[in-house]
């Protein structure tokens, strides 16, 4: 290993200027992996949707009834 080290040596320039300019750039928000939904959550959402739909249907039916009676 010692021999290897002597063979490969890094090159560091000892003359000349080294300048680093750090420009602050604006950052983008990162890409977003979407979380998968658990079965329970899917079922809950489905049930909620179904419940809302039935309520809406009932309300529509009631409205129609009222319009007929008026």
């Amino acid at each position: 290993m010692a021999e290897m080290k002597s063979v490969f040596r890094e090159v560091l320039p000892k003359q000349g200027q080294l300048s680093v300019e750090d420009i602050t750039t604006m950052v983008l928000c990162k890409p977003k992996l979407l979380p998968l939904k658990s079965l329970t959550l899917e079922k809950l959402e489905k049930m909620q949707q179904a419940a809302q739909d039935t309520i809406r249907q009932q309300e529509m039916a009631e409205k129609e009834q009222q319009q007929i009676t008026h």
Binding site: V27, K30, L33, P35, S38, T40, L41
Partner: peptide, 22 residues
């Protein structure tokens, strides 16, 4: 957070959504 987006509560976003992770 520079790599992984975070949720409102300051945690990295998870790969899975359960009723309680919401």
């Amino acid at each position: 957070p520079a790599v992984r987006p975070i949720t409102q509560a300051g945690r990295p976003i998870t790969g899975f959504l359960r009723p309680s992770t919401q």
